[in-house]
Simulated assay, not measured.
Amino acid sequence: MLHSNLLRLVARGGPKRWMSTTTKLTSVEVNDKTGIATLTLNRPPVNSQNVQLLVDLQSSIGEIESNKSRGLILTSACSNVFSAGLDILEMYNTDEERLRTIWTELQNAWIALYGSSLPTAAAINGHAPAGGCLLATACEYRVMLPKRLIGLNETQLGIIAPKWLMSGFLNVLPQRVAERALTQGRLFTTEEALAEGLVDEIANTKEEALEKCAAFIGSFTKVNPLARSLTKLQFRAENIKEFEKIRKKDVEDFVALASRPEVQKGMGIYLENLKKKSKK
């Protein structure tokens, strides 16, 4: 569900154009020289994915595609976190309808990015657990800064990662490695992620990461754009088809699981631990 009417184009002069949502939880910068768009998540302090951020993300992807950019780089305005994943506050001690809404918007954001016809890359300038990893692995290429963490740690919260969420992992990791990481809720260091193939390159700064992502997208300059996008989507078609078949059931399964008393209790403990850490 795309809400491109939330976006407006703002002329700033120079070689770049800016687009921004009315809520400013995402921003888009288009380099007029290269045609590459940089989509930045901007919900301090850790880009936790609430409903509005997920809706804004979909809107920005839709706007980039409608403006026919040559590629999309996803990154974060937060200095040490790419995205901390779903906002636990939106899932804790809430009603089933709210749970349905946030999970549906997570699905929508993932399919918008995973199913994009554009070349996509993630400049991972901070930690990327859970939903942050989901967005990064939905992209085709990943560049990460040193001493950061990435992975799907849902089992640590008592939540099960559905198959469509696993598909990004399975696109880049051997099944044995992915299975062990998912069951353990493992977070990989940057160096471990590079060794396993979860990320493609390491960069020392965000600027360098953006440059490496732009170089990846630039590698398709001499490739027919339509042929490239159709080839990409053929590789991803089976995962997308399976996702569409089960997406409604997946929402209900998530609501049933997240509503369980023991899962809610686990979320409460997790939030209390975060509060304690923030006071130190």
Rank of each mutant, 00 (worst) to 15 (best):
L54I: 12
D56P: 06
D56H: 05
S59M: 10
G62F: 04
G62A: 08
E63G: 10
I64C: 11
E65P: 03
S66I: 10
S66N: 08
N67Y: 02
N67H: 02
S69N: 03
R70W: 00
R70A: 11
L72E: 05
T75S: 06
T75C: 09
T75D: 02
S76I: 14
S76Y: 05
C78Y: 00
N80I: 12
N80K: 11
V81F: 10
V81G: 10
S83N: 06
A84H: 12
I88R: 02
E90V: 09
E90T: 14
M91N: 09
D95M: 06
D95I: 14
E97W: 06
L99G: 04
L99T: 01
W103G: 07
A109W: 01
A109C: 05
W110K: 02
I111N: 07
A112N: 07
L113W: 01
Y114I: 09
S116D: 00
S116F: 01
T120L: 15
T120P: 02
T120C: 11
A121C: 13
H127T: 04
P129E: 05
P129G: 09
A130G: 01
G131W: 01
C133I: 04
A136K: 02
A138N: 06
C139T: 15
C139Q: 08
R142H: 07
V143E: 10
P146E: 13
K147T: 14
R148L: 05
R148T: 13
L157G: 10
L157I: 11
I160T: 15
L165S: 01
M166P: 02
F169Q: 13
Q175Y: 06
R176T: 14
V177S: 00
A178E: 00
E179V: 08
